[in-house]
Design a protein around this nucleic acid. Structure first.
Lengths: 182, 182
DNA sequence: GTTATTCTAGAACATCTGCTAAAGAATGAG
DNA sequence: CTCATTCTTTAGCAGATGTTCTAGAATAAC
C-alpha cells in the first residue's frame, strides 16, 4: 500500500535508550538523537510523534529488554533470595562501568521535580517492588527497593564498587540467615 | 571605593538552590534563575562568572545550610545511632513533600553520564559516608549511604512514605539490636 | 504502468539558550 | 565636589532547541 520503514525499530529504540540513559531527557537533543539512531528528524517525528514519544518508547524498551531481561537472567521465580543477590551484584558489572545508569532511577530523579511524574516511572518501580515483595516481607522488600535505587545512584556517581559489592553480600548473608516468610 | 551589592547573597543562593533542586542544572535557564533570584542576568554573570559558577555556589550552599544543618539538627556526634535514625526519618518530612529532592543525589544522577563528574558531588557523598562510618562498621555504613540515596530517589518519585518510614524504623531497630562496633 | 499512500531528506521557522557589551546609577576615597 | 570603581539594567547576539513543511523516493494494490 505504501512505502515501508527502512530502519530496524528495535535497534533505533536501543540507540535512543542509550542516549537517554547517558544524558537524561532534557539535555539530549533531537540532533543528538539523529546521530544516535541514524534517523533524520523528519522520520523521528513521523514515527514517534515528538521527542516525548520517542522517550516513552525508549523507556518501555528499557523496561522490557533491560530490566525484565536482567530479572529473567539473574532472578527467575525459582531462584529465590539467591537470585535477588545475583541481581544486585549484576548492577556492579554493567558494560560501561554503570555510568550509563538506570533509565528508571534517572527518570525518577529528572522528572521528580515536575508536576507530572510519568506513570511509567512508577510502574517500573512497581515491577521491582513486586519482585522483592514475592520473596520477602514488606519492610524488607521496601528496603531492597531503596537499596537498589541507592546503589544505582552511587554506581553512576563513581562510588567504590568493591565496597558496594561487599555490602550487598553482607546484606544478603543476613537476609538468608534469618527465618523469612513472604 | 565603588558601588555595593544590593542583594543578599545568602537569599540569592537559597533561591538558586531551590530552582536547581527542582529542575536540575541543565533544564533551569538563566531566565528562570533571574525570576527565582530577583537578579538580572548581568548581575548573575558579574557575581558568579557563569551559570556553572552559580550552580557551584548554590551546591556549596546546599551542603553547608541544608545537609550539614540537617546533620547538626538530627544527628550530632553524641546522638549515636538514634541520631542517624532521626536523620533518615527527617527525609520523609521535608517542607514540600520532598519532591524538591536532594541536590547531591540529583546532581550525582544528572552529571553521572558526563565525563567530568564534579568533585563536589563526591565530596558531599563523602560527608555522609564519614558520618555513618563513625558510628557503624564499614559494610553497614555503606548500606546506609545507599539506603539514604535510594530513599531520596523514591521520595522524589512520590513513593509511599509510610512504607519507607516503617522500613527505616525496622532497619534501625535491627541495627541497634546488634552488637556494633565502629 | 498507474496511483494512492507512506516514508525519507533537507531546509526552514520561531523560540529559547547562555552569554556579552554598553550605558546608567550608586558608592566611597581624595 | 570629583572621580575612579563597581554594581545594575537593558538590549541584543550567535547558536541551539523542538518542530514543521515541502519535495522527493519507495512501495504495493489495481
Amino acid at each position: 500500500m505504501a512505502r515501508v520503514c527502512e530502519f530496524d525499530p528495535s535497534a533505533v529504540l536501543t540507540s535512543a535508550m542509550e542516549a537517554f540513559r547517558r544524558g537524561g531527557f532534557e539535555s539530549v537533543s533531537i540532533r543528538t538523537l539523529e546521530d544516535a539512531t541514524g534517523l533524520k528528524a523528519g522520520s523521528i517525528y513521523n514515527s514517534f510523534g515528538d521527542k516525548q514519544g520517542l522517550f516513552r518508547a525508549a523507556f518501555a524498551h528499557y523496561v522490557e529488554h533491560v530490566l525484565r531481561a536482567r530479572i529473567a537472567e539473574h532472578a527467575p521465580p525459582e531462584a529465590g533470595l539467591a537470585g535477588l543477590r545475583a541481581l544486585f551484584i549484576s548492577l556492579m558489572y554493567e558494560p560501561d562501568d554503570g555510568t550509563l545508569g538506570c533509565l528508571i532511577t534517572n527518570s525518577a530523579v529528572e522528572f521528580g521535580g515536575s508536576d507530572a511524574q510519568p506513570a511509567a516511572v512508577h510502574a517500573a518501580l512497581e515491577i521491582l517492588a513486586d519482585l522483592f515483595g514475592q520473596r520477602l516481607p514488606a519492610t524488607q522488600s521496601v528496603k531492597l527497593l531503596a537499596l537498589y535505587q541507592g546503589i544505582l545512584v552511587l554506581v553512576r556517581a563513581g562510588w567504590n564498587k568493591p565496597a558496594l559489592e561487599a555490602m550487598v553480600q553482607a546484606e544478603f548473608d543476613q537476609l538468608e540467615g534469618e527465618p523469612n516468610v513472604a
